[in-house]
């Protein structure tokens, strides 16, 4: 067990970090919900008005899937908030809370990496279609 205790000014950084992270997580949750609605509108219009360059059922399902992944990311991002708060509110084990918080942050960002890889592949496919 590490006995290092963060100073007040350092604790202030962690307090602000936990607030920023929570706000970011909540905004991502709103974004994910909007993305799911957008995917639904995309798919419904593609289904009833016929698929064109901008609407299709498959595209809509894809957007809903990315929205669901983003929603999962939102919940994962909110988890390390608690560890950063514990650094501020408790004494001792500060370094352990920090490492656990960073671990959870890394876990959340693995999901973000997956979403971004999917987005990059989709964008690259679109770019390939434009070129050929």
């Amino acid at each position: 067990m590490s006995e290092y205790e963060f100073t007040d000014s350092q604790n202030a950084i962690f307090a602000k970090l936990s607030v920023s992270l929570r706000r970011f997580g909540i905004q991502l949750g709103v974004f994910a919900t909007l993305l799911i609605f957008f995917g639904l509108a995309f798919a419904i219009r593609g289904r009833y008005e016929g698929a064109d360059a901008y609407t299709s059922v498959a595209g809509g399902v894809g957007i809903i899937f990315v929205g669901a992944l983003t929603l999962a990311l939102c919940f994962k991002l909110l988890k390390p908030v608690e560890e950063f708060r514990l650094i501020v509110n408790t004494e001792k084990n500060d370094i352990d809370w920090l490492i656990t918080g960073l671990d959870k942050l890394a876990w959340a960002h693995r999901t973000l990496r997956l979403i971004l890889v999917m987005l990059l592949l989709s964008a690259a496919l679109l770019a390939y279609r434009v070129l050929t």
Partner: peptide, 28 residues
């Protein structure tokens, strides 16, 4: 501290993206 700045900036960017997605929903 830089991570905190990153999340703050990212929050505003996601807020802008929310606006863009809303416009796209209205367009659809």
């Amino acid at each position: 501290d830089n991570l905190r700045t990153a999340f703050s900036t990212a929050t505003w960017i996601v807020l802008t993206m929310n606006g863009i997605v809303l416009v796209m929903i209205v367009m659809l």
